[in-house]
């Protein structure tokens, strides 16, 4: 997902009996769906895992602006340009909502961003793929935002109050993102020429598997899931969410008149779900580890933005100090 492979630092989930009274009181609140708020007592592992998860989510929103930004200056009509600007702007905003939620846990935004730029923390693997034609912008809105929404809708019920409230706000605002993407593709398929239709299929071919990878490894390979689920900072397993996404997406794919690059994709009467072929986890781990198509460029762009902007931020701070001094003197 936007937060993949979040390490809880916990080997085995403690039972209520093994917990200290504080831990037990905390867990009982979580079990009773009572939200944990910033000033409440919380286990250190919970706090740290949340910082990791929320910052990763926030970093993903911000880095996620770049693949779309690649086509912002080349959007093919005024309407499409405005829509894409609004969408990218939302992503910057969602990054800020999430950093804001993260800061309620005592973390510092600038420090967490430094960790990102130093390559110490991750962001979603999906944003390391290049956008090579205009239909990629449609595919990102439809598939990538679609996958994100499946995850984020579930996270609206997460146990940490500020995170949950940020998710509610984000979900409300993101409802247009997926439609914006699908509308781009649908217009190209319905009213487009052969070249445009080929762009759509090409985009789907490239973004299909990486979108499925967004949900992270299979449950059997997700050692941190149990603790995250018991803390309710994860509400469904990777495989559950992936299946939910796939089940809702395949009919939309068919409606477009396109195909998925998966010969094994077919409806299973017995399970009531779509079956799909094996995911190339070697690719996933390579991208996560830094050897994706655009990892270096994405981080470089973000690092440069913050480094090149340092004198600007310093100037604003210096000016604010001068002003404050003048006001005190007056």
């Amino acid at each position: 997902m936007y937060a993949q492979l979040v390490d809880t630092g916990v080997k085995r989930v403690k039972s209520l009996d093994e917990m200290t009274p504080e831990e037990r009181a905390f867990q009982e609140k979580v079990d009773a769906d009572i939200k944990i708020e910033p000033k409440n007592w919380m286990p250190e592992g919970y706090r740290r895992t949340l910082i990791r998860q929320i910052s990763q989510h926030a970093h993903s929103e911000v880095v996620g602006m770049l693949p779309e930004g690649n086509w912002l200056t080349r959007a093919p009509s005024l309407k499409r340009k405005l829509q894409l600007m609004a969408k990218i702007q939302d992503e910057a905003g969602h990054g800020l909502y999430l950093y804001s939620a993260m800061e309620t846990l005592g973390a510092d935004r600038d420090e967490e961003i430094e960790k990102l730029h130093a390559g110490k923390v991750k962001y979603s693997s999906i944003f390391n793929y290049p956008t090579l034609n205009w239909a990629d912008i449609g595919a990102i809105g439809w598939l990538v935002d679609g996958a994100a929404i499946v995850n984020q809708v579930a996270l609206q019920r997460t146990s940490y109050g500020p995170y949950s409230r940020a998710m509610i706000r984000i979900c409300k605002e993101e409802s247009f993102h997926q439609r914006q993407g699908y509308d781009i593709l649908l217009t190209m398929m319905r009213e487009g020429n052969d070249a445009q239709k080929a762009m759509v299929q090409d985009a789907i071919n490239r973004f299909w598997w990486p979108s499925l990878m967004m949900f992270g490894p299979h449950d059997a390979d997700s050692p941190n899931s149990a603790q995250s689920m018991s803390w309710k900072i994860k509400r469904h397993t990777n495989d559950e969410l992936r299946q939910r996404f796939l089940d809702q997406t395949v009919p939309q794919l068919e409606f477009l008149g396109c195909t998925a690059p998966d010969p094994d994709l077919k409806w299973n009467e017995k399970t009531g779900h779509y079956d799909f072929g094996p995911i190339d986890w070697a690719e996933f781990y390579a991208v996560i580890a830094g050897n994706g198509p655009c990892n270096r460029e994405r981080l470089e762009t973000r690092r440069n933005a913050i480094e090149d902007g340092q004198w600007v931020r310093e100037a604003a701070t210096a000016h604010a100090a001068k002003r404050a001094k003048k006001q005190t003197a007056a």
Partner: peptide
Amino acid sequence: LCEWCGRAPALEEELALMNVGL
């Protein structure tokens, strides 16, 4: 202003620049 996307000196400025652009 679109050229600034993802490159502004602060995240808050990303939003501000994009607002003006919109």
